[in-house]
Design a binder for these strands. Structure first.
Length: 372
DNA sequence: TATGGAGGTAAGGATCCACC
DNA sequence: GGTGGATCCTTACCTCCATA
C-alpha cells in the first residue's frame, strides 16, 4: 500500500472510540479519534480543504483495525468529519462495539499508540489502523520504540521506510500484524507469484493462519487493483480516441480473461498495437510480473506490444509510464529460457521496472463520467 | 511576555429506539 | 403517542505551545 502514514499517541478522549473505554474511562461523550490539523491536513493531505470532499467535511472510510497484540483484522466502515465549527478532523461515526471487537481493545490506555496508514493521494478513502498497547506483551518493545520516536509531540507523519525501520527494530514475533506494514510490498509480490516476495516472507514469517489471511487479502486486493487499472486505461484510451491520438481500442481481457494482452489499439496511422496493463497502488519501482504466455505474445515480431505501467492507483486517478515495443526484450528472455533442460518451462518472470525503457510519466485523471 | 492557534476534555442538546 | 434511556453530534472552555 502506498499509504500516507502517521503516528498518534492516544488520549483519554481518543479512546472513547471504543465502547469499553467509553464506559470505563468516563472521558466525555465524544466518540472519535482526533486527527491533529498539522499532520492530517498539513503533512498528509494539504490539498484536502480545496477539494469538494474536503469542503463537504465528510469522508466515508473503510477501516481495517489491526492489533493491539496478535489479532486478525477487524473491518469497519466509519467516517472522518469536520463540521464548520470543528477545529480538527475527527475519525467519527460510531464507537467500536464490544459485540464486534470482543475484549481485544480493552488493554488500550491513554498514552498508547495508533499508526494510521491512509489510502488516497488527495483525500483519504480507506485506512489501516495499527493499535499498539503497552499492556500487551507482544507490543511492549514496539510501544517503547514509538514512544521514543514521538518524543513530546502528540502526532507526527512518518514515511513507510522509517516506519519499517521502527518495526524491524522491535523484532516482533512473526505473526504480529505490524509486519504487514513492513512486508506489504513482499505480500503483494508473493500474492502475484513473485519469488522475491515469497523469499522475504519465508525469511520473516512462519506460515501462521494470519499469514494466510494476509496473503488472501493481498491477492484479492491485487486482483482488484489490476481490474481497476485496466478500467482506468479503458477510459483513458477512449479519451485518446476522441482526441484523435488513436483511432480505436478494444478491452480484450474484459471479454476473454485468459488473453495474453489486455487491449488492442489501432493507432492514428492504422497500425495495430497490443498492450498489457500492469497496475499497482504502490510506487513505480514495485516489481512487475509477466506470464510466459504474455512473453510469447510480446515476442511476436509481426505486431507491436507495449507495456503500460500504472502506479499510484486510486479512485479515478493514477500515473502511467509506457514501455513501447517489448518484442526484443521478450525475445531475449525466451532465448535464455530455450537453454533450460527439456521439460522445464518457467511460468513467468518478475521484472524490476528499472531494466525496461519506460517513457515519461503521464498523469491520468478522468472526468467523473469516464470512470467505471 | 502576550497572543493566537491547536489539542484535549466535557457538558448538553438532538435524535433514535425500545417499551409501555 | 408518550416516556426515558442510549447514542451521537455540537460546542464551549481549558491548557499548551509556538511565535512575535
Amino acid at each position: 500500500m502506498a499509504g500516507k502514514i502517521a503516528l498518534k499517541q492516544l488520549t483519554r478522549s481518543d479512546l472513547t472510540f471504543f465502547q469499553h473505554q467509553h464506559e470505563v474511562l468516563q472521558a466525555g461523550h465524544q466518540k472519535s479519534i482526533n486527527l491533529n490539523q498539522d499532520v492530517f491536513v498539513g503533512a498528509l493531505f494539504p490539498a484536502l480543504p480545496d477539494t469538494p470532499e474536503g469542503r463537504s467535511g465528510y469522508l466515508g472510510m473503510d477501516l481495517v483495525l489491526l492489533g493491539p497484540g496478535i489479532h486478525t483484522a477487524l473491518r469497519l466502515q466509519r467516517k472522518i468529519v469536520k463540521r464548520s465549527t470543528y477545529k480538527n478532523w475527527r475519525l467519527n461515526g460510531e464507537l467500536v462495539p464490544k459485540a464486534a471487537a470482543g475484549a481485544r481493545f480493552d488493554p488500550l490506555q491513554p498514552g498508547d499508540f495508533v499508526v494510521f496508514d491512509f489510502s488516497g493521494n488527495v483525500f483519504p478513502t480507506a485506512a489501516r489502523l495499527l493499535f499498539v498497547a503497552a499492556a500487551v506483551p507482544e507490543d511492549a518493545t514496539l510501544h517503547g520504540i514509538l514512544a521514543e520516536r514521538l518524543g513530546s509531540r502528540k502526532m507526527i507523519p512518518l514515511d513507510s521506510s522509517e516506519l519499517g525501520s521502527l518495526i524491524d527494530a522491535a523484532a516482533l514475533p512473526d505473526s504480529h500484524p505490524a509486519l504487514e506494514f513492513t512486508l506489504g510490498e513482499a505480500i503483494e509480490d508473493a500474492a502475484l507469484g513473485g519469488v522475491a516476495g515469497v523469499e522475504r516472507l519465508f525469511r520473516r514469517r512462519s506460515g501462521t493462519t494470519m499469514d494466510q489471511e494476509a496473503l488472501q487479502r493481498a491477492r484479492l486486493r491485487a486482483e482488484a487493483v489490476g481490474r481497476e487499472g485496466e478500467a482506468l486505461i479503458d477510459g483513458w484510451l477512449a479519451l485518446q480516441a476522441r482526441q484523435g491520438v488513436i483511432r480505436s481500442h478494444r478491452w480484450v481481457s474484459d471479454l476473454n480473461a485468459v488473453a495474453p494482452y489486455d487491449f488492442s489499439v489501432e493507432d492514428a496511422a492504422g497500425n495495430t498495437i497490443r498492450l498489457d496493463v500492469k497496475s499497482t497502488a504502490g510506487p513505480f519501482e514495485r516489481t512487475l510480473h509477466i506470464s510466459m504466455a504474455e512473453l510469447q505474445e510480446m515476442a511476436d515480431a509481426g505486431r507491436r506490444y507495449d507495456l503500460y505501467r500504472v502506479y499510484a492507483l486510486e479512485a479515478g486517478t493514477a500515473r502511467l509510464r509506457i514501455a513501447e515495443d517489448m518484442a526484443g526484450f521478450a525475445d531475449s528472455l525466451l532465448h535464455t529460457f530455450s537453454e533450460l533442460p527439456e521439460g522445464v518451462t518457467p511460468d513467468g518472470v518478475s521484472i524490476s521496472p528499472a531494466v525496461l525503457l519506460f517513457g515519461p510519466e503521464i498523469e491520468i485523471r478522468l472526468p467523473e463520467d469516464e470512470e467505471d
